[in-house]
Design a protein around this nucleic acid. Structure first.
Lengths: 213, 213
DNA sequence: CCCTTGCTAGTCAAACTTGACTACATGCTC
DNA sequence: GAGCATGTAGTCAAGTTTGACTAGCAAGGG
């Protein structure tokens, strides 16, 4: 699964109530069109689909205040909130070597209580190690790794990647245990969306980090 | 883009001529259904699509020799061979943080002359560094990184990932420069497909590395 | 006053992906 | 020798993703 549902739910949730263009703008502000599949079509599709599935409630709204076609505003239902946290927990715990889900999850992790975030990240490191062990166990033939030829480089790369990510995750856990950042159970959250009238400093047309991801 | 076209072209090319089920079996042998989107539907779709686009030539063939419906055999056209090498070179050079394309490219890199593979990988490290620099430049605001709150962890992770991958790529380049493996210009290639009557040691039903990727 | 540019908000067709399903043949068991 | 699992080869509908496109309105220039 891609990160699109998590991103869209997270963006709508930050606003309380948001229309598609607002979500699209937030995701652009986050650079998400660069490091995930957050293109307009995917965003609007996800909104409609999740509305159909009862995760979002759609309010039909009069013509926009600023030109363009009429717009629909969305709001998370209870089921939507539940789905959001399910996706978020899952994204924090799962090792899947695809950057988008993990990146989105980092952006939203402060929606959880600090202790839970730490627990999930520890589980993540455990799973990375488990995965690493299974690569080593399965893909090294009995008669020695030479038998694999250059294919052995693939396992080599996987192991290297897994180790790097485990190390980084461990360091993050340490920072969190030392009290870094403000979590859901600790007061004023960090604001990561654009206000209704705020200009987007990363408006389309320039290149950002994440380019060529 | 996903790795499916590269994988399918590479598999057909190794056989010279292959039908869909054979390709599907090879990809399973490589574990590709675990670390990429190489599911039956995608494979057959890619074959048909690339045949329509003139990258593959489709031979209509009589009923199979071993039960099941009649099958179609495919062969790379000149355009298909060109496309294969374009995709391969591109995959070796591009830093995109998605494991599947890179993994496929490693598996096929020996189809190039050694010197070219090394050159492409060096370009890869250059691009990784370039990307890293752009992340640092764009996402650290003037008034210090603290302003980013926990969002700064995302840049932190990207930089960490990029560094890890650059290091690994450099080590690979060294191994290749020391003469590791056998490349296209150096005689007998490593055989990575199943022969017509060979059994698949990784037949479906067991778990392999790449599980839960 | 007209015309281009740009922003707002979204739609659409085409391509791709997923997972379940079909149909035929062989071998094995009871 | 009837049924049943297994292997062969592939299809299909539903869902997702992509990139290009539409259409309304406002601001500004000449």
């Amino acid at each position: 699964m891609s990160a699109i549902r998590l991103l869209v739910l997270g963006a709508v949730r930050m606003h309380g109530r948001a229309h598609g263009y607002q979500v699209r703008n937030d995701l652009e502000y986050w650079g998400a069109h660069e490091w995930s599949n957050a293109k307009p079509g995917s965003i609007y599709h996800a909104l409609k689909q999740m509305a159909k599935q009862g995760l979002l409630h759609a309010h039909e709204i009069a013509p926009s205040t600023a030109g363009g076609p009429p717009r629909t505003e969305y709001e998370l239902t209870d089921a939507g909130t539940e789905e959001y946290f399910t996706l978020l927990r899952d994204a924090l715990v799962t090792y899947d070597q695809r950057g988008d889900v993990k990146t989105a999850a980092l952006g939203f992790m402060v929606d959880l209580p600090r202790a839970e975030a730490v627990t999930l990240l520890k589980e993540r490191t455990r799973r990375i190690e488990e995965w690493r062990a299974s690569v080593v166990a399965h893909y090294v033939p009995e008669d020695g790794p030479e038998r694999l030829g250059h294919i052995g480089e693939i396992m080599n790369m996987w192991v290297h990647t897994a180790d790097s990510e485990r190390d980084w995750t461990s360091e993050l856990i340490e920072r969190l245990e030392d009290g870094a950042y403000t979590f859901a159970d600790e007061g004023d959250p960090f604001i990561g969306v654009l206000a209704e009238d705020e200009e987007n400093p990363y408006a389309t047309g320039q290149s950002h980090p994440g380019d060529a991801l």
